[in-house]
Design a protein around this nucleic acid. Structure first.
Length: 195
DNA sequence: AAAAGGATCACCT
DNA sequence: GGTGATCCTTTTT
């Protein structure tokens, strides 16, 4: 079942934890991809110094301030696209970064998109996900309650004891926020980006 | 350990 | 309207 807007329209930390074990589905013309979400990071609000939203509204981060359930896709390091899900009600700029998936459907096409790499290297990092799926800036602002890209609940339950909370990756610039445990992953998954 | 690479933002003029 | 530091990373040495 496709997640509804009400799922996303809640506290970012809760949404992040509950996205574990759900499935990202992407259906561009004549293609089909699906992957199980095994690692995420929560970016809480304008107060979160690790978040793009900490600098108030700009052209880039604008979508984070809008309604929940939309995609926030941005370009970084001159090379990579990163995919986020917008959370919370309007004016509260929360988002969840998808950091790692377990590939499930469309694997052959993912391998092609990733230059022949396979297995553990396919989607074990935020920019690896977008490369494998072929996600780029065209997906920014797309409504996840539509028919191009969305997240599904396949009825799997991830027990709290299987969820690990850890420091976020690559946010050493974020002052007192850099060590907060807002990264969540499924314990034992072979596809997480960093242990 | 370091290169790869370009958009974005803060801060100037 | 121009400049420079920075960046929610990946790959290769």
């Amino acid at each position: 079942m496709k997640l509804k807007r009400s799922f996303y329209e809640r506290g970012t930390k809760e949404v992040a934890r509950q996205l574990l074990g759900k499935y990202l589905v992407f259906e561009p013309p004549h293609k089909h991809f699906a992957g199980k979400i095994v690692e995420v990071e929560a970016y809480l609000s304008q107060k979160d110094l690790a978040s793009h939203a900490s600098k108030n509204r700009t052209k880039r981060n604008e979508v984070m301030f809008g309604p929940a359930g939309h995609a926030y896709v941005y370009f970084t390091y001159g090379l990579f696209w990163l995919f986020n899900v917008v959370t919370e009600k309007e004016e509260v700029a929360g988002a969840v970064l998808l950091r790692a998936l377990e590939p499930v459907e469309g694997i052959e096409e993912m391998v092609r998109n990733r230059g022949g790499r396979n297995g553990h290297f396919l989607t074990s990092g935020p920019a690896k996900i977008t490369e494998a799926f072929g996600i780029d800036g065209k997906i920014n602002r797309v409504d996840l309650c539509g028919d191009l890209i969305w997240i599904e609940d396949w009825g799997e339950v991830v027990k709290p004891s299987k969820i690990v909370a850890a420091k976020r990756i690559g946010v050493d610039y974020a002052g007192g926020w850099k060590d907060k445990k807002l990264r969540f992953y499924i314990k034992g998954s072979e596809f997480i980006s960093k242990p």
